[in-house]
Amino acid sequence: MTFLPAYIKRIGLSSVPTRADLATLALVMAAQSRSISFENCDVVLGKRISMADADVEAKLVGQMRGGYCFEQNTLLRMALQALGFQVTPVLCRVRWNKPSDEDEPNTAFTHMALKVALDQGEYLADVGFAGTNSIAPVALGTANSQALPEGEFRVTDGRPGYQVLQLHVKDEWRALYSWRVGEAAAAIDLECANWFSCTYPKARFTTSFFVSRVVGDEHHHILNEEYVVRKGHGVGSTVEKQRVADLEQLLTLLEEVFGIELAAGTDVTNLDRYLPPPANVD
């Protein structure tokens, strides 16, 4: 099976879309977000992450795995280009839960997103920021609030030369990530950022376990030992939390909730290294 039909089947669509328009972009983004989990299992297991198109396709489509932003948005870029879209990768500085960067940048370019050019203008497309990004396209070129399925978003100016994606949370606008205006990400820069993210000892994904998936109107994620289900968004949202007890429960959640099928024979030693140690039994 060639790439595009296999991808369309993987994300649960019944047929290949025939128009490269906003409706198709929204359809594909939502379908991938609901079908392919964000996950860093391979990083936790000490493996290196490849951004090569063939490797991304083999893992996320052929092996029924998920991936983090450099894999997820590489796959989305491949699919959109195959559907006839004009796509530009961009590198972003993560701003979510970070201190002000008014004086100087204090986060590296460790996130990949996409800009998609349509007849009505450019849109930001991102299926790889896990629990807080919009699974629908975000219009660029306007600072107005945009009511989207995952909440209210807007794009505004940041530090000089940057734009920022923001999410409205508890009566305030909070920055998710920023990018340089008008600058496309070179392949070598993406490769370096990906290498940093899966190897640097203090990088987020080498120091924690994280998996996330959109299920209906719910966001499910596991961060280290905590399994969280958030229903809805904004003031009407509810959050349920539980502790992941052991490796057996973690593997069950990965398969049954997140649709992650680790290959037979995978050495899962250390996959549970962020879970609490077993209680002492006298």
Results as ranks from 00 to 15, higher is better:
M1F: 15
T2Y: 08
P5S: 01
A6I: 14
Y7A: 08
I8V: 15
I11D: 10
I11Q: 10
L13P: 06
S15W: 10
T18M: 11
R19Y: 11
D21A: 02
D21G: 03
L22P: 01
L22G: 07
L27K: 06
A30H: 08
S33L: 11
S33Y: 07
R34F: 04
R34Y: 05
R34K: 15
R34L: 05
S35T: 14
F38G: 06
N40I: 14
N40S: 15
V43N: 05
L45Q: 04
L45G: 01
R48T: 06
I49N: 02
A52L: 08
A52F: 04
A52M: 10
D53I: 12
D53V: 09
D53F: 15
R65V: 05
G66T: 00
G67L: 04
Y68W: 06
C69K: 10
C69L: 12
F70A: 12
Q72C: 06
N73S: 05
L75H: 06
L76A: 00
A79D: 09
Q81C: 14
A82N: 09
G84V: 09
Q86M: 03
Q86K: 11
T88Q: 11
P89E: 02
V90I: 13
V90P: 13
C92R: 00
W96Q: 08
N97A: 06
P99T: 02
F109Q: 00
M112G: 06
K115L: 12
K115G: 01
V116Q: 05
L118K: 00
L118I: 00
D119G: 04
Q120K: 01
E122Q: 14
E122W: 14
A125K: 04
D126T: 02
V127F: 00
G128Q: 06
F129T: 01
N133R: 05
A136T: 00
G141Q: 10
S145E: 10
Q146P: 13
Q146E: 11
E152K: 12
F153V: 13
R154H: 08
R154M: 15
T156C: 11
T156R: 09
T156K: 08
D157R: 03
G161V: 01
Y162C: 15
Y162P: 03
V164S: 04
V164D: 02
Q166K: 14
H168E: 12
E172V: 07
E172L: 05
R174N: 07
L176T: 10
Y177C: 06
Y177K: 05
R180G: 08
R180K: 15
V181E: 11
G182E: 08
G182A: 07
E183F: 07
A185N: 08
A187L: 13
D189T: 12
L190T: 03
W195Q: 01
K202F: 14
R204K: 14
R204V: 15
F209V: 06
V211R: 09
R213D: 07
R213K: 15
R213C: 05
V214R: 12
G216H: 03
D217W: 00
H221Y: 15
I222Q: 08
N224A: 13
E226T: 10
G232N: 06
V235F: 12
G236I: 14
V239P: 00
E240K: 12
R243N: 15
D246W: 02
L247V: 08
Q249N: 08
Q249S: 15
L254E: 05
L262R: 12
A263R: 14
A264G: 12
A264D: 13
G265C: 06
V268S: 05
D272R: 07
R273C: 04
Y274G: 03
P276T: 00
P276E: 03
P278R: 09
V281C: 03
D282L: 09
